[in-house]
Design a protein around this nucleic acid. Structure first.
Lengths: 313, 313
DNA sequence: CTTGCTTACGAGACTCGTAATAATT
DNA sequence: AATTATTACGAGTCTCGTAAGCAAG
């Protein structure tokens, strides 16, 4: 048994049990992988894959267990390399953040600015995507940190930490009748065409819930995946917009007005996700603390080693 | 980087940083280990050991981290092998219990009897030792389960589970004046020479605490590490004995009498300890459940993956 | 007939043991 | 002087890539 075999195994699992694809991904030959997997199965004395003649059909039950363990093991192997890098060169390396438009555009810029000044030797990458993509990038190590408001909680292998709480707000053209209302209600909002986030983005679920709870059906005329699109169409007069409060910038959005919705919609919590048990570089802790000052190194370390909430077995 | 290098590393750490001893323990050559460690250090780009010329003096800070990770990684490697064994042959293998006299002599026999009947193919080993030895055997994998009333809680790498609660009792010769007392008090006990457990065994700490709390100094004339020795000397008239209640067997100890001490001494909890994150064979779960029926497989699985209570970093 | 896994085989790399060397106690 | 680590070197093994074979869809 060796690490290489386990890497092969992991890659096969990632590539839908296709050995050829795994070979391509790892820049090696397909027969090589095939043989090593055979050897591994032989050594462990179990079949990892169910084979249909010469095709791999599925994973066996013990295979699933083996895969699980192998992944934890490989994570520790990565950690070893990271420890090396950390001590070899404290402040150089790379840091990849997977996040959504809202965070990348409105929440992260000041953090990034501070970070790159402090760590000029660290190559900072931002991957933008939807919450599911983000979570998966964190899961398979493509990203070191995932930041989003939705969907991060659904993976056993990820640890999540609350970063900050925010509310939605209403944005309307500067001459809109709603600006004269004494008290905003969902019912009044429902009278106008609404432009807001696409399903699965930036707390859209909270918006749906609120209207449903009052038996209202909002007239969503456009669902966008980012606030800039929403603001553009609100400006054009297509409807009223509901966006994250961070996304309204008075200096820039001069033709729009903001109205708070704190009392109508539940608040949202933006969270970040890390791979459980991963070793983090010193600058990664620093980045996290820059983003959410309560997430000190100690807090993060403690959470990283916490128990899983649910177990599959 | 490969598993072998990490095994070498682990063994060196276990053998007080002596490469020659590690080589002996692993049945390999000393230069071989030396070289592989060098290679590992080179690959990680850090020094793991502090060298004084040609002697290894200590572990560096990054080395300690590396060692920590390596141990977790190797545990998972062991787990892979165990998964193999589990599925290859469900009911054969070995199970090693490290425990104290009290448990081995009075608590375990019925469990062992049932177990060997149910699993004739499993080689069951019992290692007797003091609580510290027991914990260490569990730690380095010499034992699969440690069972004791003391000392198990002090290791990060071990998970402990409560098995059962018990009290001490007083044993006296059949004609002893204390048998005529209406109500036993610690003060009355302190009037007689006492024979009980050695420090660090079977709840001795609870006994000391109780007397101290009342400002009494018991006259301990003999401290033994097992109840059989205690009973022998009580029978000889050397004093009165305080032992675990399980250790008194009316049918056998016919010349002695038992008096309850539940109201005078705090109760004790016997616990078992497992290595955190270890994969357990099916029959191991079964053994645990035979010993403590509330410790079902699910309960144990959940605890094994729990977070550490304290972190060193 | 294309995709995908396995078998066969050989070049090159790696591991490990022995022997010699050197430093520390 | 004895213990212990490093260096040197060679035999044997292992890994991996190419090429050929073969089963499944």
């Amino acid at each position: 048994m060796n690490l290489q075999q386990l890497r092969y195994l992991q890659e096969i699992a990632r590539r839908d049990l296709n050995i050829s694809q795994a070979a391509d991904a790892l820049y090696t030959s397909q027969p090589g992988i095939s043989k090593q997997i055979k050897l591994l199965e032989e050594e462990l004395g179990i079949e990892i894959f169910v084979r249909n003649g010469k095709r791999i059909a599925s994973i066996t039950e013990p295979g699933r267990l083996v895969l699980d363990i192998a992944q934890r093991l490989l994570l520790e192997a990565d950690n070893l390399k990271l420890v090396g890098q950390e001590f070899r060169s404290q402040d150089t390396g790379s840091l990849t953040i997977a996040t959504t438009h809202t965070q990348a555009r409105y929440a992260l810029p000041p953090v990034v600015k501070q970070f790159i000044e402090r760590y000029p030797g660290v190559k900072l990458n931002l991957h933008q995507g939807n919450p599911t993509q983000i979570a998966e990038q964190a899961l398979n190590g493509e990203a070191d940190i995932a930041i989003a408001t939705e969907a991060l909680d659904q993976y056993d292998e990820l640890v999540t930490l609350p970063c900050y709480e925010w509310h939605h707000c209403l944005i309307v053209p500067q001459d809109h009748p709603l600006l004269n209302e004494d008290e905003l209600t969902l019912a009044k909002l429902a009278e106008y065409p609404i432009i807001t986030y696409d399903f699965a983005f930036s707390g859209r679920s909270k918006i749906n819930q609120a209207f449903e709870a009052e038996g209202l059906t909002p007239n969503i005329v456009l669902s966008a995946i980012d606030a800039d699109v929403i603001k553009t169409y609100v400006d054009l007069g297509l409807g009223i917009g509901i966006v994250a409060e961070m996304a309204f910038v008075p200096e820039r959005d001069v033709r729009l007005r903001r109205l708070p919705l704190d009392h109508l919609l539940k608040s949202n919590v933006t969270r970040l996700a890390l791979r459980r048990n991963e070793f983090l570089r010193g600058y990664t802790y620093h980045f996290i603390e820059l983003f959410a000052s309560h997430l000190t190194r100690d807090v993060v370390v403690n959470t990283l080693r916490k128990k899983k909430e649910t177990l599959r077995e």
